[in-house]
């Protein structure tokens, strides 16, 4: 049993099939295109959708950046980078500005993206209505006929209970004033970055075998109500490393009493910011 793998692992026919799905996804913003997802050597739920998108898009000239939770150095990001180094011999970068292709889990980089860049999201549950209606034939109809009332009801129930919308991540959006879409489990802090982004935003759900996209310069609206507008998380304090107040901050527990400090989730942004503010 000798095994030699194709460039970027997938065979050419699989790439073709995925590429066709990507084009349809761009043509129908926010619509979940079913595709013949392949089994990858990484487990489902660990980024197989994103990996298949990256494998179908990537070429020898690409500069690939992989992040998980905003960090270039978390275990899953490392594992995916190794995969593409091994199967495609691809150049890896941590620099958001020079990366041509960025695969991410749960964050959008703080550094604004540019025209021509591609951001690939790993998506665990692509269906924004999954927890309202788990049956696929039903949700297909709800998307087809724009029956999104149940989602508004769910958000309104939050307001009745908490006085505000309680969804903190994977906050649902409407794309191009048509499809309701899951932005993947990014914090709602990142939702505004989806709106009219100059970059190409691709979403891959491997286990659920669906691909969707937001083309550049496309309206992406987070669901809300006139009297209860969409609002972002904010923190009392700044990043303990770089001092930023303009980024998503993670809490780090520093002792047994639960004392905590705040630190940028985007490690590359933090390092650059620290370098420029404290030369």
């Amino acid at each position: 049993m000798t095994v030699s793998y194709n460039f970027a692992y997938l065979d050419e026919q699989s790439k073709k099939m995925i590429r066709r799905a990507i084009l349809k996804a761009l043509a129908i913003p926010g619509f979940q295109v079913p595709f013949g997802g392949r089994e990858m050597p990484l487990p489902y739920g660990w980024g197989t959708g994103g990996i298949q998108l990256t494998a179908s898009v990537i070429g020898p000239d690409d500069q690939l950046k992989v992040i998980d939770q905003g960090s270039d150095d978390t275990v899953n990001a490392i594992s995916i980078k190794h995969f593409f180094q091994k199967t495609a011999g691809i150049a890896i970068t941590e620099d958001t500005e020079t990366a041509t292709l960025i695969q991410t889990r749960h964050r959008i980089p703080e550094t604004p993206l540019k025209k021509g860049q591609i951001l690939v999201f790993q998506v665990p549950i692509p269906e924004p209505l999954q927890f309202i209606e788990p049956k696929r034939p039903q949700t297909l109809k709800m998307h087809g006929y724009e029956e999104y009332g149940s989602m508004h009801v769910k958000l309104y129930e939050d307001i009745a209970r908490f006085g505000r919308i309680a969804t903190a991540f994977d906050y649902p959006v409407r794309v191009h004033h048509r499809y309701l879409m899951s932005p993947s489990p990014i914090p709602k802090y990142d939702n505004p970055k989806l709106h009219r982004s100059p970059a190409v935003l691709l979403f891959g759900a491997g286990r659920e075998k669906r691909i969707y996209a937001i083309p550049p310069y496309t309206d992406v609206v987070s669901l809300d109500f006139e009297d209860y507008p969409f609002e972002l998380e904010h923190w009392e304090g700044a990043c303990a490393v770089c001092g930023s107040t303009q980024s998503f901050l993670d809490e780090i527990i520093t002792d047994d009493n639960g004392t905590r400090v705040l630190i940028c989730s985007d490690t590359e942004f933090c390092r650059k910011n620290a370098g420029s503010s404290q030369p």
Binding site: Q69, V75, R105, H106, A166, D250
Partner: peptide, 14 residues
């Protein structure tokens, strides 16, 4: 088992 720091942080903020 994968890190979910960011989502957990969003829940913490809430």
């Amino acid at each position: 088992k994968l890190p979910h720091y960011v989502d957990f942080q969003s829940e913490l903020v809430f």
